[in-house]
Simulated scan of single mutants.
Amino acid sequence: MSPADRFALLVEDFGSLEGVVPPGATVGFGSSALRFEGRIFAMLAHDRLVLKLPSSRVASLVADGEGDPFDAGKGRPLKEWLSLSPDSGLSWSELAHEALAFARR
């Protein structure tokens, strides 16, 4: 299954959750992302799932080889953003639920 197809399944799963806004509901930056009350918590970028998680969780996942800090093309890694490795066996749904819980804080 392609990354785009996997992300489409996430959108379908999360689309009915209270406060979650699916891709396409906004314009501009993040228009293709899942949002909670205006805050992006999951998106697909360069065929990789990108999630906003606590910085300690991102550091742990990076240390485990599950992904890299996301840098948004600015050349500076963002501490609370993970770009999940395509080789990761972690569940996209479980990580997206973690990211949603973080967005709800």
Rank of each mutant, 00 (worst) to 15 (best):
1 M>I: 10
1 M>G: 13
2 S>A: 09
2 S>P: 15
2 S>W: 06
3 P>R: 02
5 D>W: 03
6 R>L: 09
7 F>S: 03
8 A>F: 00
8 A>G: 02
9 L>I: 08
9 L>R: 11
10 L>Q: 05
10 L>N: 04
11 V>E: 02
11 V>H: 00
12 E>M: 02
12 E>T: 06
15 G>H: 00
15 G>K: 00
16 S>P: 00
16 S>W: 02
17 L>S: 06
17 L>C: 04
18 E>V: 07
19 G>N: 08
19 G>R: 07
20 V>Q: 01
23 P>Q: 08
25 A>K: 12
27 V>R: 14
28 G>R: 02
28 G>K: 01
30 G>K: 11
30 G>M: 12
31 S>Y: 06
32 S>N: 13
32 S>I: 02
34 L>I: 05
34 L>G: 04
35 R>M: 02
35 R>F: 02
35 R>D: 01
36 F>G: 06
37 E>T: 05
37 E>W: 01
37 E>N: 09
37 E>G: 03
38 G>Y: 11
38 G>I: 10
39 R>T: 13
39 R>A: 12
40 I>H: 07
40 I>T: 10
40 I>P: 05
41 F>C: 01
41 F>Y: 03
42 A>Q: 11
43 M>Q: 13
43 M>R: 14
44 L>P: 07
45 A>I: 08
45 A>M: 07
46 H>T: 08
46 H>E: 13
47 D>N: 10
47 D>Q: 09
47 D>T: 01
48 R>Y: 01
48 R>D: 02
48 R>H: 11
49 L>F: 03
49 L>I: 03
49 L>Q: 03
51 L>F: 04
53 L>R: 10
53 L>E: 10
54 P>T: 00
54 P>S: 00
55 S>W: 09
57 R>F: 00
57 R>G: 00
58 V>H: 02
58 V>T: 06
58 V>Q: 03
59 A>K: 14
59 A>P: 09
60 S>Q: 15
60 S>T: 12
61 L>A: 09
62 V>I: 12
62 V>M: 12
63 A>E: 15
63 A>D: 15
63 A>N: 12
64 D>H: 11
65 G>C: 06
66 E>T: 09
66 E>H: 15
67 G>A: 14
70 F>V: 00
70 F>D: 01
70 F>R: 01
72 A>I: 10
72 A>K: 09
75 G>F: 00
76 R>S: 13
76 R>A: 09
77 P>F: 04
77 P>D: 05
77 P>L: 08
78 L>M: 15
78 L>A: 12
79 K>Q: 05
79 K>Y: 01
81 W>M: 06
81 W>Y: 07
82 L>W: 14
82 L>D: 14
83 S>F: 05
83 S>R: 15
84 L>W: 09
84 L>R: 13
84 L>S: 07
84 L>K: 10
84 L>F: 07
85 S>R: 14
87 D>I: 04
87 D>M: 09
87 D>T: 14
87 D>F: 08
89 G>H: 13
89 G>L: 13
93 S>V: 12
93 S>P: 07
94 E>K: 10
94 E>H: 05
97 H>G: 08
97 H>T: 11
97 H>F: 11
98 E>A: 07
98 E>D: 14
98 E>K: 05
99 A>G: 08
99 A>E: 09
100 L>S: 05
101 A>Q: 12
101 A>P: 05
101 A>E: 14
101 A>M: 08
102 F>S: 01
103 A>W: 06
104 R>Y: 11
104 R>Q: 15
105 R>T: 10
